[in-house]
Write a protein that binds this DNA or RNA. Structure first.
Lengths: 329, 329
DNA sequence: CTGTTAGCGCTTTCAC
DNA sequence: GTGAAAGCGCTAACAG
């Protein structure tokens, strides 16, 4: 059933029915009541695609994530999506996780009101431009690295991971740790070295190791690191993600090391898992509800034609749990 | 830019352009090349909503899950979504996880080609009817309980969890276990008792406990069970989900019990986590790629007007890992 | 092979 | 306050 038939069944014009359904002020209370009632009883629903074509609005925002990352394969992204969905729906928007190939997603850009782009190290400005149809689609970029430039109609939420890491390093120093291992997930030259120095800690190249993203990769990398004959064992392991940290804990335990009495482990992101592994992970938390709120607020402003380039920096926070203890004697 | 302007810039009619873009046979090779080339260089993309309105097809399928369950909060559903997305995209469909309230999702039903409905214990036939607009939308129901009846245009994939559980119980019996605890996640009267008897195992009410769905709830329930003064400790704990199993393992360990030497734990679903906890979980695996393939095949048949009510039963399988060992002496 | 035209189902002026 | 009619951007049937 379409609106024309439905209107006919009410002896009204489809214009009036449309106005009633859209809660416009021009319809009489009586007519409105009638329309709503009948729509309910007949189960009449308007065709969303026709509405979207006519209005140019979809009330959908789409979540995009970095290349080579499936949002459903990354627990942090899943939790972020959950947070964004919460605030989005309270503001009358639906969140759509449009999976599928990137080229197909590009074609969808005109079918959403706005884009939430989670950028990674490897996401370039060109990627963002392409995703936003060169700035024609309202977008908010969520990232931890400050972008050189923003396309038009794009605002920016920067997650300041450094603040949380700085707090972590201070804590680590205070606990007397001297030899600190670092399990990174990619080749990116991050600012760890500088942060170590600021915290009065020594950055040792030989204690840095490259892992991938999975727990298994964290496990393997940790074993390799701890079994390196060339160096004294680190007393604490910093990791890029909680998943890697979980792998690191397992690796240490499989070597018979007690966490945290013989070796400490620190994660990053504070995903649900962090509190649930044994021992619970000390980690750096991203305040997802806050990120989601900030990002959605920015996005709705752009969608409502109140664009002004905005950057908000949100700090991260050290969550202290049992996996971090004092340096062994 | 819309197709009319774009066609004008090529000195062609929009009809021809549309045919070229849709890869119709009637256009000359030369014209097609020209159109494709220019579309690429100008970055022209057709408006998806207009296309959907004109064709009545969206190439989108939507995943629905049981009441009170957010798909992003349940690791099994996330992994299932991943599997469905894989086969869907290989068949030219996009998977849309349309979150938001159920009423809002219902309004979207006309905007998708078909529905994949994951039903739980509490999902009724009426729910399914409502979701499918009383059988007007092609749908496949994925569930582990056989439904009394199917609405029109609906096929069914039954996940036969019993087969895997039967294998598990046989294994447990063979390992000499006699006292078996069971951590369920809801009140549903399942067929465990009968299965126990078939396996020659004794079903003890006092070793059954109700947990929720989270790892914490599994942990708490397990502690309560193991600390019940009234009964001898079970030698193996069966759980409804891997998440609960992970909580159970932690609870046992926190009481100083070695898993599996002093107590065994068995999960269900074989989510990624199952292989990663310590010790890795014995569990019952649902073959997600197979489920996804079967469900998508059924759904595309319905969408393509080749509907015939179909039911496929897919077995589950015991995955034997370290968390299950012989009964302690 | 290409151009013209009539919808798809809705919203939104513009009259009345 | 309501009806009539003109689009929204596309596809597909119909001519030529």
């Amino acid at each position: 059933m379409n609106i024309t038939e439905f209107a006919k069944s009410l002896n009204l014009s489809k214009g009036t029915v449309s106005r009633a359904l859209n809660d416009r002020p021009e319809v009489s209370a009586e007519t409105r009541r009638l329309v709503l009632e009948k729509a309910e009883s007949l189960g009449f629903l308007r065709n969303p695609n026709a509405r979207r074509l006519a209005t140019g609005r979809t009330h959908i925002i789409q979540l995009e994530c970095p290349y080579n990352t499936n949002i459903l394969s990354d627990q942090y992204l899943v939790e972020l999506a959950r947070g964004i969905e919460n605030t989005a729906s309270s503001q009358g928007y639906d969140l759509m996780l449009h999976l599928g190939s990137r080229s197909r997603r590009a074609a969808e850009v005109q079918a959403v009101d706005g884009l939430m782009i989670v950028a990674g190290q490897e996401t370039s400005l060109d990627d963002i431009k392409a995703l936003t149809a060169f700035g024609h689609t309202p977008a908010v970029v969520i990232s931890d690295t400050y972008p050189a430039e923003l396309p038009p109609l794009t605002s920016y939420v920067q997650i300041d991971t450094l603040s949380g890491v700085r707090a972590t390093l201070a804590k680590i120093a205070a606990l007397g740790h001297k030899r600190i291992g670092y399990i990174r997930s990619d080749q990116s030259t991050d600012k760890m070295e500088a942060l170590f120095q600021q915290a009065g800690l020594e950055w040792r190249r030989e204690l840095v190791i490259q892992a991938g993203v999975t727990q298994q990769e964290g496990y393997d990398a940790t074993l390799r690191l701890l079994e390196r004959p060339s160096c004294e064992r680190p007393t604490v392991l910093l990791t890029r993600t909680d998943i890697l940290a979980a792998g690191a804990v397992q690796a240490a335990q499989s070597l018979g090391l007690n966490v945290p009495y013989e070796i400490s482990v620190v994660g990053h992101d504070d995903i649900d898992l962090a509190a649930l592994v044994n021992p619970p992970l000390t980690t750096v938390a991203i305040n997802i509800p806050m990120v989601a709120k900030a990002a959605m607020d920015m996005l709705t402003r752009i969608i409502e034609d109140k664009y002004e380039p905005t950057v908000r920096v949100l700090e991260t926070q050290l969550i202290f749990r049992e996996s971090l203890g004092p340096a062994p004697l």
